[in-house]
């Protein structure tokens, strides 16, 4: 494996107004890795991802993807990456096929190719019969599937996923997990943020925990386990993000009802 990082962040800082959201992130990701990026709400997970895909050009520090500087060569980066946003944001008055064709054209793919891939991928996700139905009636899980396809349809080298499993049912979660493993085997790099600890635990090569805009842990699951002397990612997470008082809180909760 060559040691040229696919994603490289140095002293990454980002603020909204006066709030400093990211307080200096240093991170390297190598080819074929699956990185699980976790942290409590508001820790800066989505912001990191948005910077990495070139949506937020206004940041401090250095950010490189595939050797390209994001500030200077955002287009080159965007050609080679796939991104699946949170919140299931897409043009919902379109049908999945129309939407995917649109996305394909943005990537300068031939319509035939897009259509063929879209067909197959929609079928795999069980949306074949919905290919030409407008998405405004879709459930969150169905939209999420379309978004997953739209993030992968141009066969990118690096894939950024922001809460990719939200709204998916148990079967779809298993399917996505398998797909991610296959993508890794095909040499793709995957960077994804999630709340679902046991999935992160199972599929990530490396886990990065972020809290209040700074990385507080970075290593394989085994390393983290040794470091925190604890058995599950949930416990490690709890220990590191400083939320030790949950059992007291549960006690207080019951008291308040009395």
């Amino acid at each position: 494996m060559d040691k040229q990082p696919v994603v490289s962040l140095r002293g990454l800082k980002k603020s909204y107004g006066r709030d400093l959201i990211l307080k200096g992130i240093d991170l390297d990701v190598y080819t074929g890795e699956i990185i699980g990026y976790i942290g409590p709400n508001g820790a800066g997970k989505s912001t990191t991802l948005k910077i990495l895909i070139g949506m937020l050009p206004d940041f401090v520090g250095e950010a490189k993807v595939l050797g390209y500087d994001i500030r200077e060569d955002a287009l080159e980066v965007k050609k080679r990456i796939g991104y699946v946003p949170e919140n299931a944001m897409l043009y919902e008055v379109l049908t999945p096929m129309e939407y995917l064709l649109f996305i394909g054209r943005l990537h300068k793919m031939e319509d035939d190719l897009t259509e063929r891939r879209a067909h197959e991928l929609l079928e795999i996700f069980g949306l074949k019969t919905h290919a030409d139905v407008r998405m405004n009636a879709f459930s969150k899980g169905m939209r999420q599937k379309v978004l997953l396809i739209s993030g992968l349809i141009h066969n990118p080298d690096v894939i950024f996923l922001d809460e990719p499993l939200s709204g998916l049912d148990a079967n779809a979660v298993i399917l996505v997990k398998e797909v991610l493993a296959k993508l890794k085997a095909a040499g793709k790099t995957i960077f994804y943020s999630s709340h679902i600890m046991d999935v992160v635990e199972k599929i990530s090569d490396r886990i990065v925990i972020i809290n209040q805009g700074a990385i507080i842990a970075n290593g394989t699951f085994e390393e983290l386990k040794a470091q925190a002397q604890s058995g599950s990612l949930e416990h490690i997470f709890q220990g590191l993000t400083g939320d030790n008082e949950n059992s007291h809180r549960a006690e207080d909760f019951l008291q308040a009802l009395k």
Binding site: I53, K79, P85, M89, K108
Partner: peptide, 13 residues
């Protein structure tokens, strides 16, 4: 704001 999310991550200047 869907526009931002849909178009910005794509290779479009």
């Amino acid at each position: 704001t869907t526009d931002n999310v849909v178009l910005l991550p794509r290779p479009v200047n």
